[in-house]
């Protein structure tokens, strides 16, 4: 058994997830972590699986689904321990007019403070560009990061909000 990282991107259609899952299970590959979404109408799936089949074999099986140009990439990866959180969870929202470099500028501020982004989505809705990120940050870095984000936000003409992301224990 080996661990494989797989990305599949293509035109969305009903049944595409079922077809990808069937191709993998047909080779004995077991889905562990996966995420699937639609990005401006394109089907996009990223996953890790444990597989007895070699990467090239899996890639060929996925390529056979390419009824309308499915792009599949399969790479072996080393099994990794789950990375321990490096701080407390925070949520970042950025919204403003679409402009080149917003994501790069904002995520650089987080990276410079040792922040680790654990989930991120961006969306263009009409003229509105929107980013929401979940980030682990050292609490003692938050004041400086907030100030720096405000500067970057002003320079880019976007609104920036950083706030604690408390988990609800039920």
């Amino acid at each position: 058994m080996r661990e494989l990282a797989i990305t599949v991107i293509g035109r969305d259609r009903p049944g595409i997830v079922a077809d990808v899952a069937a191709a993998l299970s047909g080779l004995g590959a077991n889905l562990t972590d996966s995420t699937m979404t639609r990005l401006r109408g394109h089907f996009a799936m990223t996953l890790i699986c444990t597989s007895p089949a070699a990467p090239a074999e899996v890639e060929a099986a996925l390529a056979s689904l390419a009824d309308n140009g499915l792009l599949a990439m399969v790479r072996p990866v080393q099994p990794d321990d789950i990375t321990a959180p490096t701080g407390e969870p925070y949520l970042l929202t950025v919204h403003g007019a679409d402009r080149l470099g917003i994501v790069a500028a904002v995520t650089r501020v987080l990276a410079d403070a040792g922040g680790n982004i654990t989930d991120l989505s961006t969306r263009l809705s009409g003229d509105l560009y929107l980013l929401v990120a979940e980030v682990d940050l050292a609490p003692e870095a938050v004041d400086a990061v907030t100030a720096r984000l405000a500067e970057v936000g002003t320079a880019l003409g976007v609104g920036v909000t950083l706030r604690p992301n408390e988990a609800d224990l039920l």
């Binding site: 949520l91 929202t93 909000t161």
Partner: peptide, 11 residues
Amino acid sequence: FLDRVAGAHAI
């Protein structure tokens, strides 16, 4: 409300 959403996939 975008500044208050509950997560990266809450929009």
